[in-house]
Design a protein around this nucleic acid. Structure first.
Lengths: 212, 212, 212, 212
DNA sequence: TATGAATGAGGCTTCATTCAT
DNA sequence: CATGAATGAAGCCTCATTCAT
């Protein structure tokens, strides 16, 4: 039942989603749905809260695991994990995306700030950890970098589900190509964030410098 | 008359936009609107085509002007000009943004690929020009870079109109702060794209030389 | 169309009135009704305003005509005219009555104060005119008397349309009986209940003293 | 439990009252309510019967007490006691009031005639007792007088709970003012409106004489 | 050509009542 | 006996579109 509702909201957005369609597909009485959730908005809020809860675990796993890795590897891992999550939950991702741009989404401010705060904090901490490890430029503003990362990742996740947004880049293509493109995006970002190796060779760390 | 229609579509999206509201505000006959445009979709297509035509001139001016400047300066200029454009045409920008994520927008594929092709081509050429000038790393993939630039710019333009998306970064704040934040975003991108300056020299030229 | 709406509201009250029933009886599309009046409340407000306008003329005619008559005669004439009006417009009267006691009637406060102000002012002036003519006790408080008159008339008008409220008095009976009962009510108000202590006959004024 | 139901019916009338709201406020199972009372109408009938039973004792007390008092004093006492009762049981009074004008109240005819018969009989006997005491005009028709008394009292009791109906008279004001206004109403009924022709005195008996 | 009344499907929501647990 | 999920009709209202004037 929740699955069908997810689908409806993701496919049509909030306003265009139809309670009639949902109950029609589920073959239940319209009143039943309202007995559970009170209103269309209540149903949506419930779905969204569940989604937020569900999304936390994998993100946390990424953040807390492999903390010793240099920043570029971690960023690639985050991109890969996020991509997998969005592909596994296309409806959920679709709802989130819609909410970002659709100002009359109900509860938009509430739900969005909740999610965005978590996300941006997550990226900021990732940057700061990298700075402590000397794998990120010390003079990089974490907030700015987090913004760029989030924008790029968001667009990539959207593009991989929508050929028209992919525009030939390859994110909407087969898994191998997608993985390569995601890595390339992360790499492009890193070559800016990473400490510039300067003269003497950048010995052990191994990653992230372009040309010797 | 078209202004009010723009506004309606930008404020409510396609489906949620109401012909009734439009004619109500304009105080014209509902029948007239349908005689001109045939249908809601016809009206929207007309509006969008006008918008695309209108947007071309300023973008072309940015592309064709100051081609001699080093890449970072040009990128900042593009960001500034785009920001000004989005602020000057919030409704137009709103329609475009919605169309990006709302899959059931009519004509979405047609209109969007038209716009995106122009935009991405524009950024790709910008990169390639920079590479020719040696102010951009030669081994940077132009398509990847264009994708990142577009994602960041798109998010920035959205954030500057929506405090909840700005999340304290300052894009939705006063003009000076906004300008500084936009420059910081461009700079963060550049320090990744540009040739890494290495040790010694050229502290004056700022950036845009590779590494020795 | 307005007639059917009057009927629906009068028979069922505001909340219980059904737009579906109205359009069903009229055999028109539901949308049409909403195009005219915007909402159920809008329809009701329109009906009520029309009714208020319609009621003013006859009431004014009563007030302004026969001003020379002694008070008791005038009061009886007012009762008779009001009774005729309520019988001629049973739906209108029904709506007004409902609104008096049904607190969640929309626009209740607005519409009611408008009507009540007119009504009570009318009765107060009637009393004051009687006092100037020496056909009403000089020490009678006009506001108190107006309240009593209005209460009695209101109840009488309701009773004449509802046997269960008439309770055998005869107001809901044939015209002659009704007229006699209305006169008796007016007379009872004029003379009062108490034994009039006095003595010698109440000479010229002729009317209105009980026992010599 | 019954209290909440009273409140719901009084606040919203019969049709507009919501079983859902009642069980929601009471936090009991909807099924239980239907097992006790069978239906909405059954619940209402039960409530109303209880109310009628409850109302009888105080009314009887008023009727049977102080039977020796002159009529005007008794009338004032009845007004005061009724006012106190309505203020103490506003919901009960609200239900009764609504039923008077709302024709589609279930059981209206049954319940109403039961109550009205009691009430009118009570007032008629009050009048007749006054006539036997020579404190009420012998030629006054008891039924007519009862009707007027009931109409006035009913309106007063309604007005004291509803400022918009009070219309500045003062019944909805503080207890002292209310008491004074109630007395004034009773007095106006007793004395009548007309100039009482007589002359000299009986100023000591307090009321029951018009003007000296 | 311009009008705007008429349409009727569809929108979300509330409701009293039932009945399997 | 108590529960509360399930029901589906009915509620008000909005909508894009048509068409006779």
């Amino acid at each position: 039942m929740l699955d069908e509702s997810y689908r409806e909201f993701a496919e049509h957005g909030y306003h265009q989603a139809s309670i009639n369609r949902i109950v029609g597909r589920l073959d239940i009485a319209k009143g039943s749905l309202f007995q559970y959730f009170g209103s269309k908005e209540g149903l949506f809020a419930h779905l969204f809260q569940r989604a937020v809860d569900e999304i936390k675990a994998p993100l946390r796993a990424i953040r807390d695991g492999q903390t010793g890795e240099p920043f570029p590897q971690r960023l690639k891992r985050v991109f890969a994990a996020s991509s997998a999550f969005a592909l596994a939950h296309p409806f959920l991702w679709g709802i989130y995306r819609r909410m970002l741009t659709q100002e009359d989404f109900p509860l938009r401010a509430t739900l969005l700030s909740q999610v965005r705060a978590e996300t941006l904090t997550f990226f900021r901490e990732l940057i700061e950890l990298g700075q402590n490890q000397d794998s990120v430029r010390a003079d990089l503003d974490p907030a700015t970098a987090a913004f760029v990362i989030e924008a790029t990742l968001d667009r990539a996740l959207t593009a991989q589900l929508s050929p028209v947004l992919d525009a030939g880049l390859g994110l909407a293509s087969d898994p191998q190509t997608r993985q390569a493109r995601l890595d390339a995006l992360a790499e492009a970002l890193c070559l800016g964030f990473s400490v510039c190796p300067t003269v003497h060779p950048a010995p052990s760390t191994a990653k992230g410098d372009a040309n010797a």
